[in-house]
């Protein structure tokens, strides 16, 4: 599904450059729910932005279902963002002037596929994520958790190959965060969605099939949940993070 190979990215910092991604390689399989964790500055968000094609990579390859993303430009890039990728942002990025249902339909409207089928799909997503009752409300009238579930539904409206989520629980209380993670699980279970999520939150990451831990721009360790209970997996994640902290000290 998603293959990242030897990805490099540096930012100019005055007269020098700061290399944020130093040759990252990873893979995400079809229907997999993968999280990326790591301390601040480890390159998580930069990695996600490169995969989303929001930032151009300096070197390396990002392939989605065999298609190279790093070379895409203009309308081809827009088409990939619209139909093959779905996005969930930390601060939701819902449009205040549209209702919840209209926000969900937005990618379909942009792609010119907002027909009766899309509307039915939007209604189904509302039902799955428990936001049917607020479908006609505006973002300013709903809670943070509801906003993020709306964003998840929006990400799924065009049935993308991959959902990219950037700290989706970062702005939420624990109850709302749990609801959002549950919505990802539902998307995976009911719709077969593949999800790639960047998070700080070990609780959110513990729901994933696999967690990639970054440190200083490289993959430090990859942990698979396998058959472990969620709580045990979270403990294992916390142990790894503590271990990384000791190594860094």
């Amino acid at each position: 599904m998603l293959t990242v190979q030897n990805l490099h990215k540096a930012y100019p910092m005055g007269k020098t450059t700061c290399e944020v991604l130093k040759g990252i390689s990873l893979e995400v399989g079809d229907g997999e729910f993968v999280a990326v964790m790591g301390p601040s500055g480890s390159g998580k968000t930069t990695l996600l932005n490169c995969i989303s094609c929001y930032l151009p990579a300096d070197a390396g390859s990002i392939r989605l279902n065999g298609g190279e993303l790093t070379r895409l430009r203009g309308d081809a890039l827009a088409a990939v963002r619209n139909r093959r990728l779905g996005f969930v942002f930390q601060d939701f990025l819902l449009l205040d002037g549209l209702t919840v249902r209209e926000n969900i339909l937005l990618p379909a409207i942009i792609g010119g596929t907002a027909d009766a089928q899309a509307e039915a799909r939007a209604d189904r997503l509302c039902a799955i994520f428990g936001i049917a009752a607020i479908a006609q409300k505006y973002p300013a009238e709903i809670s943070g958790g509801e906003k993020q579930r709306t964003a998840v539904a929006r990400a799924l409206i065009n049935e993308p190959l991959l959902i990219l989520a950037d700290e989706p629980t970062g702005n939420l209380d624990s109850k709302s965060a749990r609801a959002v993670i549950r919505s990802f699980e539902q998307a995976k279970a009911a719709l077969g969605a593949t999800i790639f999520m960047v998070t700080h939150d070990s609780y959110a990451a513990s729901f994933c099939d696999r967690v990639v831990i970054l440190r200083d721009g490289v993959v430090w360790r990859t942990l698979g949940r396998e058959r472990r209970e969620r709580a045990a997996f979270q403990d294992a994640l916390l142990d790894s993070i503590r271990e990384m902290g000791r190594e860094g000290a």
Binding site: Y54, A78, V80, R81, L85, F87, L93, L94, I110, G111
Partner: peptide
């Protein structure tokens, strides 16, 4: 920005 992020063309 939201339109562009969701795949609208320029």
């Amino acid at each position: 920005g939201v339109f562009l992020a969701l795949g609208a063309t320029r």
